[in-house]
Computed example of a mutant assay.
Amino acid sequence: MDLVRSHHIDVMFVCEPRISGSKALVVIKSLRFSCFEVIDPEKFSEGLWLLWNDAKVKLDIIGTSDQSISACLSWQGQKPWLFSAIYARPCNVKKEKLWEYLNFVASCHQMPWLLAGDFNDILQVEDKVGGVSLCKLTGMKKWFDANSMIDLGFSGPRFT
């Protein structure tokens, strides 16, 4: 709530909120956004919330899946752009469904597109430390390259 107030946030994406149902609704309403779209988690670490103030931003949900929420956004006087909030399941078979769904979203729209969230995947070997070693990059890297996406980088600690 402090972040929302101090930074005058008009759109907020929460990945893996760790609560659902009536508890989630209480928290969402306490944040005082006028609109929201929720994908409830199937397990403890899943789920997505997209919250926004419709008096400040025009946001139309264009589609959802169990791993994403996609919306068309625009502020007054600005051109619209596409935003996809992502929580990719750690299972490669389920993640493949996400890439297929995002291919469908890409085929339907020709506007600037920002994807953000937890992809449970990497674009380059240097993005990983520890755990199981990787022989090759697949999944996200393949989709990323096929759709001519650009990595905008990050701010903060390299490995979170």
Rank of each mutant, 00 (worst) to 15 (best):
V14D: 02
S148I: 01
K79I: 05
S133T: 07
F154S: 14
G139L: 07
K97P: 00
C135P: 00
P17Q: 11
W99Y: 09
G153V: 08
W49Y: 10
L152Q: 10
D60L: 12
K128M: 11
F36E: 03
K43T: 06
A55Q: 06
D2N: 10
C91W: 04
V93Y: 10
S30F: 08
F154I: 11
S22N: 06
K58F: 11
V57D: 00
C72N: 09
G47F: 04
N103P: 04
D121W: 08
W143C: 05
F104T: 15
W143H: 10
E126N: 14
Q78S: 12
A88W: 02
T138K: 13
M12R: 06
I61F: 05
L123Q: 01
K142Y: 05
V129S: 08
M111V: 14
D121M: 07
L31R: 02
A88G: 13
L152I: 10
G153F: 13
N120E: 08
F104V: 15
K58Q: 09
I69D: 01
W113Q: 06
L31H: 02
R32N: 13
A146F: 11
S68P: 02
L31P: 01
W143S: 04
G131M: 06
T138D: 10
L114R: 06
F83L: 15
D151F: 06
S155N: 13
A116D: 03
I39Q: 11
L123Y: 05
I19P: 01
Q124E: 14
K29L: 12
D121E: 14
F13I: 13
C35K: 15
D145C: 10
K79W: 02
R18V: 00
V11Y: 03
A88Y: 01
L31K: 07
I122G: 03
I62T: 14
I9C: 04
S34R: 04
V132L: 09
E96N: 14
V132A: 08
G77I: 04
V11A: 05
K29C: 12
V129C: 08
S107I: 02
G139C: 09
F44Y: 12
Y87E: 01
K128Y: 08
S133E: 05
D118E: 08
